[in-house]
Amino acid sequence: MESRDADRKAWMGLLAKAPPGRAAGLLDAAMARPDFAWLRAPETGSVMVRGRAGATGAPFNLGEMTVTRCSLRLGCGTVGHAYLQGRSKPDAEAAALIDALMQTDRAGALQAAVLGPLAAERAEARRARASKAAATKVDFFTMVRGED
């Protein structure tokens, strides 16, 4: 995968996992939204989630999840896509706008004002949860059994 694709994969993943409304809020605080045209208006559907037998074996269908997707084009012709868990059309719109803008000269500003904070908040949420889990980790000690 080219590094441009890898970067895009990273920000799209971050947007998909952001709490509801958060990416839209950060975007609006950072800049006025540009005009755009829908290539595909937001629609909600499902994605079949797969697992693997024994975690690493043959794939099987575990069940579906709700997903909302959309595609849009900025005035300059840049296309943005979004695929997000859940049913929020405003969140999908904000994510597709950010995806498009990240391919323009606004990328630096968005990285600083939207993706940076999203990544930091996610890291902190993961750290807090991991720390609670770590506090429940068992420290075994061996009882003395009597004989020498």
């Binding site: 629609e43 909600t44 559907g45 499902s46 994605v47 079949m48 989630v49 797969r50 697992g51 693997r52 975690a55 690493t56 794939p59 269908n61 575990l62 579906e64 709700t66 997903v67 997707r69 695929y83 993961r126 949860r129 991991a130 609670k132 889990a133 429940t136």
Partner: peptide
């Protein structure tokens, strides 16, 4: 719901474990 597709098999080895 329209079906958009199927995911890649989830990697439970990379799970953020609570338990």
């Amino acid at each position: 719901l329209p079906r958009f597709g199927a995911s890649l098999p989830v990697d439970t080895g990379a799970m953020d474990c609570d338990r």
